[in-house]
Nucleic acid binder design. Structure first.
Length: 574
DNA sequence: GCCGTTTTCGGCCCGACTGTTTTCAGTCG
């Protein structure tokens, strides 16, 4: 069992116990354990076997026992029992904003509602308003939120989509009849939301294709075959997003890879250009219009070369000017993960992170970075145990001591300071002045109007100590819409005050998105790609932020955390 | 549920907001 699956079980146990009205501290313990497991760098099974699990903070005797059960049988008894007792669809209700365990229970017991569809029906016939504590506004809200949910269920945030795709392609890769399996489509282009999970497999023998499909569709994550034709199958997955598998022979691989990667707008432009240049490009084939011969290619690069183009990386294939740039040889030299020299926004166990400053720094050094900025929360964010000014200065002192011990690595002192509801910052200027890196972010007042929120952020930009605006739109992909903010104006002010905007690399955020990052670049605003990691493992999510930068055509010089330490110091203090 | 060497029991967790209320329960970050 993978760590993610075990963690997922604990999250679900927590939700189910919440529903039963179990005390807060117990359900929190399960959630904490889940979060800890997600953050582990080694397989739980390994730590369990070696007995090291008991040294992990937040995981005690009971949870270890349940992990043991899961490792043996795939499920623990408590989870099984809870699932029997409570319809799983009730958890969907609790995912609605404003509906927690108490209200879900009320709806279930008084109206017999178990699914979103039933809840919507109950709301439409005005039954919800009769329940204690609920009224017409709640009822209207339910109808609206369910409507909104229906629209988005078929798109999966990039992070989850990649995990699902990795699992399926790994599974395929293990089949004897499969030579290799590659993830393509939206995911290969690093689109922030995947409409489908696409996998391309190469069969060892021509006649194996159907057997591969047979073996594929029995994978437990797939629930139903939607359609199927020779060498192709589309199935519904448990995650709500469709999965598509294409099986080809080796000689078709590169054109099939190009074709399945998309986007369809990029392909359309490519087809047109191919036609103009004497080729016919269609499904898995590139045929000379003169000779009628199919081109034989041994890479995607070769296909673009045949068409007289520079190679276009998947991230750029959105019909956003990349084909004319490739034709003129003017594609940008995109920023790459190895260009990143440090992470300027991470949390430690001084606030709501899971690891110590030392652990985060050592991990960063291991990753090849030369610096990191520790940016724990400010006092306003009580739930994250935001640091008081005194505590923060104590942390700075600790970091100075650590810096004397570390060779070839530098820890910036820093803070992620809340932009308060009135636009003030959650630390005094004399405190901020002592930090190397100040990330200013909004964590409250999400529902304020556009003008108010925009002004708050502009006020932060104007503060001389602020270096970076963190997750500028506050969205959580698939969970929370961005707050209403005039991003164009933020970019304008960032340009005027020479401030850096963040690409928050967490796959739950990807904030700013590629569109605004491109606008920022065109306005001369530099970005910092930061993970906002709260544990060691999530420092690895840098690659997601880099993908946003690449989709926005960013080069190394547009990203401040590609700078060598000394240059970055100049930017921060200059 | 987890945690702890001044505790093996009693802490852990906090305030704002919303929509519903006449004083507050539930939700959320």
């Amino acid at each position: 069992m993978r760590n993610a699956e075990i963690a997922w079980s604990f999250y679900q146990i927590a939700d189910l116990l919440d529903f039963k009205g179990e005390e807060f501290f117990k359900t929190r313990a399960y959630r904490r354990a889940a979060r800890t497991i997600i953050g582990l760098q080694r397989p739980v099974a390994e730590l369990y076997a070696s007995g090291e699990l008991k040294n992990v903070s937040g995981i005690g005797k009971n949870i270890i026992a349940k992990i043991g059960e899961m490792l043996v049988s795939g499920e623990c008894q408590l989870h099984r029992k809870l699932k029997q007792e409570i319809p799983a669809s009730l958890l969907d209700l609790m995912a609605l904003p404003g509906i927690g365990p108490k209200r879900a229970k009320l709806l279930y017991e008084r109206l017999g509602v178990t699914t979103l569809a039933e809840l919507e029906q109950a709301a439409r016939v005005k039954k919800v308003r009769d329940l204690p504590g609920m009224g017409t506004k709640t009822e209207q809200g339910i109808i609206q939120d369910i409507g909104r949910l229906k629209k988005k269920t078929h798109r999966l945030p990039l992070g989850v989509a990649r995990e699902l795709a990795a699992e399926l392609s790994e599974y395929l890769g293990q089949l004897a009849a499969v030579q290799k399996a590659t993830v393509t489509g939206d995911i290969r282009r690093w689109a922030e939301l995947a409409h489908s999970v696409d996998i391309l497999a190469v069969a060892r023998n021509r006649e194996d294709a159907e057997d591969i499909i047979e073996a594929f569709i029995i994978h437990p994550v797939l629930v139903e075959v939607l359609w199927r034709e020779h060498g192709r199958v589309r199935a519904a997955s448990r995650w709500g997003v469709p999965v598509e598998l294409v099986v080809v022979n080796e000689d078709q691989y590169w054109l099939a890879l190009l074709w399945t990667t998309g986007s369809k707008y990029h392909l359309r432009r490519l087809q047109l250009l191919a036609w103009q240049r004497g080729w016919r490009l269609d499904l898995f084939r590139l045929i000379s219009r003169h000779s009628g011969q199919a081109a034989i290619v041994d890479s995607e690069e070769a296909i673009y070369r045949l068409l007289g183009l520079q190679y276009v990386v998947p991230e750029l294939r959105e019909n956003n000017g990349e084909i004319s740039a490739a034709s003129g040889g003017t594609l940008p030299r995109l920023v790459e993960l190895p260009d990143i020299r440090g992470d300027l926004h991470v949390h430690t166990n001084w606030s709501d992170g899971m690891s110590s400053i030392e652990e985060m720094a050592l991990r960063a050094r291991e990753m090849g970075y030369t610096y990191i900025a520790v940016t724990d929360h400010s006092p306003n964010l009580k739930i994250a145990r935001g640091l008081s000014p005194e505590k923060l200065l104590e942390q700075f002192e600790k970091i100075r001591v650590l810096n004397r011990q570390l060779e070839d690595f530098y820890i910036f002192t820093g803070v992620e300071v809340d932009i308060l509801a009135e636009g003030k910052l959650d630390h005094m200027d004399d405190v901020l002045a002592q930090a190397d890196v100040v990330v200013a972010s909004i964590h409250s007042g999400f529902k304020q109007d556009r003008d108010t929120i925009t002004k708050r952020i502009i006020a932060a930009i104007k503060n001389e100590h602020v270096d970076i605006i963190g997750h500028p739109t506050g969205r959580l992909l698939g969970h929370r819409e961005p707050y209403d903010v005039d991003v164009e104006e933020i970019i304008e002010f960032a340009a005027r005050y020479n401030k850096v905007l963040e690409i928050n690399a967490s796959p739950d955020r990807l904030d700013l998105n590629d569109f605004y990052v491109q606008l920022a670049r065109e306005s001369g605003v530099r970005v910092a790609i930061n993970t906002d990691a709260h544990d060691l493992r999530r420092m690895d999510e840098m690659v997601y932020g880099v993908s946003v930068a690449r989709r926005a055509w960013l080069e190394q010089q547009h990203v401040v955390n590609t700078l060598p330490l000394s240059d970055l110091l100049n930017v921060l203090h200059g």
